[in-house]
Amino acid sequence: MSASTAVQGLTYADVEVGTEITPVSLPITYKRVCINAASTWDWFPGHHDPEYARAQGQQNIYLSTLFYHGFIDRGLNDWAGPDALIRRRKISMIKSIYPGQTATLTGTVVGKREDAGKYLVDLELLVSSEEGPCVPSEATLELPGGRS
């Protein structure tokens, strides 16, 4: 990506169990939910048709799986830097997030391990709204082992 090989962001040695990631919040507007559908090609009607969403048992149109993927990855790379590689990410959607609410990502390092020469950090994450926990998640990041 660049001529420099210097590590951008955190290394394995920089992170301790219990470290909290930098929280990230985004206001969820109608526009953002529309961008969600358009940018991900996810035209399932629950994400753009309020009448369908309500018929489905939802309050309104709501954010999609692909939003949470991108939002969580953005938060992790904001915190750990662009060199951190997301090896695994699990999201569980227990409550939807609707226009007018705020999506907030928080998280904590729960483990560190070396596996086959990779430096891995395990995190527990949560995307929440004003209504409480919405998307409990977990991730494993591969971090550079040390500064070059």
Binding site: M1, S2, Q8, L26, R32, I35, N36, A38, S39, T40, W41, D42, W43, T65, L66, F67, H69, G70, F71, I72, D73, R74, N77, D78, P82, I86, R89
Partner: peptide, 30 residues
């Protein structure tokens, strides 16, 4: 870049490099 704008992801690997956010993989099946 449109996907990055959705979540306001400033990662230079996407804006200045040639990488793709892994979250977009599901899109490729639509």
């Amino acid at each position: 870049l449109y996907y990055c704008s959705l979540v306001e992801d400033r990662n230079p690997r996407y804006w200045d490099g040639d990488e793709c956010p892994p979250g977009l993989l599901m899109t490729l099946g639509f």
